[in-house]
Computed example of a mutant assay.
Amino acid sequence: MPASRVNPSPEEFIRGRFELAPLSFRPDIRLYRPTPRSGLAGFLAERGEAGRTPYWAYGWAGGAALALYLRDHPEIVRGGRVADFGAGSGLAGIAAALAGAREVCAIEPDPLAHAAIALNARANGVAIALRPGGPLPEIDLILAGDVFYDPVVAAQTLAVLETASCPVLVGDPFRRDLPRRRLEQIAEYEVPDMGGGAAVRSGVFTLRRANTGNAG
């Protein structure tokens, strides 16, 4: 009788089927990323997540812009406590840790993302605490990359970020649902979206306090 098939854990699948490689725009950071041979779609289907976008599998343009901004301005996180909100692969949090942040946590509800973040953090020699959600922790800075990608999520995300008692930095490639009237742009980079392909413009923004601007 043939042995029964045991599906790999998320950690085993990522380690065994993804490629750990440096990012073109930040060669000092390595991420596990899928290749055409990884079988990611099949893995997600086996877990009942067919059709769901695996945000954790890629370095998106907003996170890339934040990673470059922290490379250029490490003083904004050095010695501080930082949260990577909607962390995905953990790219922004890793960049913060490499820039000298004292503590970094990743706020991310997807358990598959937790596996990716843990592996990516380990590959870069940094420590990132994992949080599934809940009230924002007491920290010094929030990094929010690629969190305004549809109108429902954008509204929910803005409402949460407005409760922050600390500054919020947003990274986004000028998506349609980005609440521009609530943001002040402070930087712009040309970066590859999803970690490859053609470069796109991506901005870094600060979130204005709720009583200093109009919602939009």
Rank of each mutant, 00 (worst) to 15 (best):
Y32H: 14
D72V: 04
C166G: 01
E162G: 00
V168R: 03
G195Q: 05
A164K: 05
E12W: 06
L158G: 06
R176K: 14
T157M: 05
G86S: 05
Y58K: 08
G51W: 10
F13C: 01
E11L: 11
R47T: 09
G216M: 13
A144L: 12
A210P: 15
N7L: 15
C166L: 05
A67T: 10
L143Y: 05
V147P: 08
E108V: 04
E162C: 02
V104E: 03
W56V: 00
V204G: 15
S165Q: 15
W60P: 01
P36W: 04
G171P: 00
L98S: 10
F18T: 06
F148H: 09
A97C: 00
P36N: 10
Y189A: 12
N120Y: 12
A21E: 11
A21Y: 01
A21S: 14
F85V: 10
P135Y: 11
M1G: 15
A155E: 10
G196F: 14
R33Y: 01
P2F: 14
W56Y: 13
L207V: 07
R182N: 01
L98F: 11
G39D: 12
E12L: 05
P192I: 05
P54N: 07
A50R: 15
E108P: 02
L143F: 09
A41V: 10
Q185C: 08
P179C: 02
L91T: 09
I29T: 07
L91C: 04
R47P: 02
L112P: 05
A199L: 15
E11M: 01
H73A: 08
F43R: 01
G79D: 11
R208K: 14
V170W: 09
A101K: 08
L178Q: 03
M1A: 15
P34E: 11
A83W: 11
A129S: 14
D84V: 11
G197V: 04
R30L: 12
P151S: 00
G213Y: 13
